[in-house]
Structures are given as C-alpha cells and as structure tokens.
C-alpha cells in the first residue's frame, strides 16, 4: 500500500523526450494533456474520426499514456463493483440495516396498500 504519499514525477527518459518534442506535439494537438482529455471525453461520447486518429497516434508514440484508456474503463468497472459490493452484508464489520421502527412503519404502509377484501 501507498498510504497518502504524493505521486512521483514521470521517469527521466519521458521528461527528456518531452523537453524536445513537447512544443511540436502541443502544436499538433498530440500532447499528453490532449490525450488525457480525449480518453476522458471517450467515456461520455463517441470521439470524432479526427479525435480518434489523434488519440491513436499519441498512444502509439507515448508509452506513459498507453494505459490511460484502460485505466478509465477500469475505474468505471471498479466503481460499479464497489457499489454492488457495498450492498452485500459483511459479517466481519457488521452492516447497516433498516431500523425496527422503519421496518414496522413500512410494513404497516404496505398493509394499507393491499386491496381490501
């Protein structure tokens, strides 16, 4: 585990490469920031053909960004799984349940909803 530690900077090789390439990549809309934005946008809408090509080219060139699309997808999957997981009772920690008062109130309410015979 990595409790609360700041995230370290990227590897030196990346920084050296970016120092040379960055102005050109930025001009072409192919910098890492653009790739990050496109990966994020991709989670909410279909990218245009131009955007897809730009993202593709960037991911081919940049080893550091290559895992970004998978990470965004995985975060969505994990968030869903975590919320499902949350509804399972966990005997080790106990779990939240309806109060007796609420249970009785809801049962009475449902009885009142039942068709009178």
């Amino acid at each position: 585990m990595n409790h609360g530690k700041p995230v370290p900077p990227p590897p030196v090789t990346y920084r050296m490469m970016q120092a040379v390439m960055c102005p050109i990549l930025k001009m072409l809309g192919l910098c890492c920031r653009s790739a990050f934005h496109l990966c994020n946008e991709r989670m909410d809408r279909e990218l245009t053909r131009g955007e897809s090509i730009r993202l593709h080219i960037h991911l081919m060139m940049c080893g550091l960004c290559r895992r970004l699309p998978g990470q965004f997808e995985a975060m969505r999957t994990l968030a869903r799984a975590a919320c499902e997981h949350e509804h399972e009772p966990d005997p080790a920690y106990g779990y939240e349940s309806l109060s007796e008062e609420a249970r009785t109130r809801i049962a009475k309410h449902l009885e009142n909803q039942a068709p009178k015979t």
Binding site: N2, V7, P8, P9, P10, P11, Y14, R15, Q18, C22, P23, L25, K26, C31, C32, R33, S34, F36, H37, L64, C65, R67, L68, G70, Q71, A74, M75, L78
Partner: peptide, 24 residues
C-alpha cells in the same frame, strides 16, 4: 483542475501509472 497533472507544454508532471497497477 487538470493543471495539477500537466505542465504548460501539456506533458505529465506526475507518473500517470504510479499506484494504478491493480487497474490492469
């Protein structure tokens, strides 16, 4: 808020894969 992640040239200021190995 993404400014925290990138420098003015659009390059990463932090390692984007650090600590996220388990996502893969």
């Amino acid at each position: 808020p993404v400014d925290r992640l990138f420098n003015s040239q659009g390059a990463w200021k932090v390692d984007p894969n650090h600590g996220l190995e388990m996502l893969a």
